[in-house]
Design a protein around this nucleic acid. Structure first.
Length: 206
DNA sequence: TGCCAGGCCCTCTTTAGGGCCTT
């Protein structure tokens, strides 16, 4: 697989108190990796103390306890640092609409009012792996036999698995679909292309 | 009292409804 500096992406994942920032839910952990030339070259992981307790459901789901959050730095500090980490890069997440809305909501609290270029590994996987049992991250990791240490629902672990999924999809596009140099823009378009039009889109990139 | 996310996709659709996926 041949990748260039232009293919560098940040793959990220949020753990949160719930499903919607519009309902007052907040981020409690951010994890991300930088993918350069097909290799993870940097990692970012940080818990965030938002100043109040998380539910028992979230403690059980993520393994992030209130005790762990008590000693974590404030959201504002972490997000300001993370904004520097992602500045200027294309972003990838699994079910990206979820992470995008939390990213933009948390950064908006700091006065960063901008949108970020996202591609969604879930939408792309739905196009490429239509035979998969489903398109949850954990299922796709098993389906593609991707590297994992068995940790799920922690931000850095999920970001790393999503990064491996992203690389697997790039590789499959080249090997199985003869796509020449698949890039971020193609992956974005692939996820938004109607099911029946995928073959035509890929044919134009051979 | 009952409901309470939302964006995307698919189909028995498009003047709609339901499932998937994220925490």
């Amino acid at each position: 697989m041949s990748l260039t500096a232009a293919d560098t992406v940040i793959v990220l994942d949020f753990e949160t108190t719930g499903l919607s920032p519009a309902q007052g839910e907040r981020a409690i952990e951010i994890g991300a990796v930088k993918l350069e030339g097909g290799i993870i070259t940097e990692r970012f992981q940080q818990l965030m103390n938002r100043g109040c307790r998380v539910s028992g459901f979230i403690e059980n789901y993520t393994g992030i306890s209130n005790a762990m959050l008590t000693s974590a730095p404030p959201c504002e500090t972490v997000m300001a640092e993370f904004a520097q980490f992602i500045e200027g890069y294309n972003l990838v997440a699994h079910n990206a609409s979820f992470d995008q809305k939390f990213l933009e909501a948390e950064l908006a609290r700091l006065g960063y009012c901008q949108t970020y270029p996202f591609a969604c590994s879930m939408l792309t996987a739905r196009r490429l792996y239509q035979q998969a049992p489903n398109h949850k991250l954990g299922t796709l990791v098993r389906y593609k036999q991707l590297p994992t240490d068995g940790t799920f629902h922690r931000a850095l672990a999920d970001a790393e698995m999503t990064a491996h999924l992203w690389l697997a999809m790039l590789d499959d596009l080249q090997r199985e679909h003869a796509v020449v140099a698949p890039d971020f823009q193609l992956m974005q378009r692939l996820g938004k292309t109607a099911k029946g039009a995928v073959a035509g889109l890929l044919a134009r990139h051979r």
